[in-house]
Design a protein around this nucleic acid. Sequence first.
DNA 1: TCACCGTTATGCCGAAAGCGCATCACCAAG
DNA 2: CTTGGTGATGCGCTTTCGGCATAACGGTGA
Lengths: 302, 302
Amino acid sequence: MDLRQLRYFQAVAEELSYSRAAQRLRIAQPALSRAVQDVEADLDAPLLERNRRSVSLTPAGKVLLREAAILFERWDEAMRRVRRTAAGEEGEMRIGYIGPPTQPFLGRLLKEYRRRYPLVSIHLEERTPERVWEMLAKGRLSVAFTRPVSTADTSGLRTILLRKERLGVVLPAEHPFAQRSSVAWRQLAREPLIVLARREGVGLHDAVLTGCQQAKFSPRVAYTPSLIGTVLSYVEAGAGLGIVPESVVPPEPTLRFVPLKPVVSVPLVLVWQEAEDTPAVQRLRELVTEWQRTGKLWKAEP
Amino acid sequence: MDLRQLRYFQAVAEELSYSRAAQRLRIAQPALSRAVQDVEADLDAPLLERNRRSVSLTPAGKVLLREAAILFERWDEAMRRVRRTAAGEEGEMRIGYIGPPTQPFLGRLLKEYRRRYPLVSIHLEERTPERVWEMLAKGRLSVAFTRPVSTADTSGLRTILLRKERLGVVLPAEHPFAQRSSVAWRQLAREPLIVLARREGVGLHDAVLTGCQQAKFSPRVAYTPSLIGTVLSYVEAGAGLGIVPESVVPPEPTLRFVPLKPVVSVPLVLVWQEAEDTPAVQRLRELVTEWQRTGKLWKAEP
DNA sequence: TCACCGTTATGCCGAAAGCGCATCACCAAG
DNA sequence: CTTGGTGATGCGCTTTCGGCATAACGGTGA
């Protein structure tokens, strides 16, 4: 027994007429006659009562008609789902990300993604850059927004650069450097510095150390808090000068951000498993590329 | 896309190997290769990743594999149900019956039926004989145990005789007739009689009147209660003599049943719609026939 | 490095199945 | 009794399906 045969039976059972059903199916009537006979033989069950000039359903026929409707429904649904999955319009995606540097765009990006592909279910995992890379390597994430980490195992992973952020110094508005358009690394040699803890952001922390090293001094690191916001709090409290990427705009008017020279930058990247490059991830990449190309994010609210 | 193709895809997806799948399906490997390609073209979705020496599932392939399992499950279930329905092992049956004369056997009969065909759902409707015939004519019942009713429309209905019950007189144990082996109708001429109400049992009531008429007298009908049990109560109370079929065995030792001569009997029949003669009903008829033939009912409890 | 083995894909042919046309058998209505 | 419409059947054509032989390819071992 076959889908084609079932479809034919269904047509006859619904029309209660072989000739009308044949018209509907755009085939000749004898083919139908055969098909239904074959089905009956296959199930060894009479399905249609063809007595004098009228066709009616036997109990088994009624059951089959009901079941057929259900089966075709499920069948179509299954085909739809496969197509949608292949097109990246349906599926599942686990996104890893690090909070602060992605905060300015991630929300709006995902909002647009959900608008376009509402059937893709998204799981978000906020972690430290190191954890993100680890989960990615283990296949626990489909894709991630993070910073490069030198220790990470990047085999089988592919990345695209989203942005490079210059490092700069955050200082109180009344500080002598506050009005300048840039500050040299050298000038930080004697200052107490405040940098994000290494375990929270290896890339950033190491970039700061590299900057100092290239300027040939060893930094006096006063504090290494776990949150980027806490860096700002320390600065406000006069505990020293903070070093952060430019995306960390101080919200308080009492603080200033001044870029450091020579430019040292920390990249932000999009990473994914080459092996698990699902259509849903591809669509996300397309969206990111579109954003990069046009330079425009989508409005938060339509 | 086709059931065959889906089955082929399923085999490959489960084995993750074309050649093993081909072995399992007992076909040659090239046929499989084609079939899967056709499916992929049909859905325009890649389903299998055949890279270097290994076959793996794409996201769409995973979805299809899951859906396929569900679909085949439902498909098999549907086929099973149709077969079972045709064999009368599954289905629905509305049985009409009249209470008192069927009481000695109906319970055990249905118990055995349920034991043999547990998936047939049975609806029981107890009515007066007239109502039973009416519902049968309207197609509201699949089959019924009842007594013939002269006014009933029997077109399209078929009946088989279950038993013919002789009429007899129920009287107090101390009554002069109580020790006799039969009583002539004539002898009831002067007695006050108690008969079931005509609206409750036309066949029985009319049979009594016919008996009297053939004995050439008009009966003195004292009471016509609605329940057969009430007939016995009246007799016990000394209100007259009851006339009932022999299946009404007086449980009280104070009452006696004595057959009437000449024999007048009321039949009990099994009736069904010729047009709605479902397999479930056929099985019930077979069971009844078996009972009639062997004369044996099945034990109430195994 | 190269031959070899086992993998999937492709070309080709014979067998089988599906379909349409013509026609039959049947029944009801005119 | 004819006529028109129904489903069933016989037959030939076309399509499809499967098998065989073989190609293309990648991994493995000498």
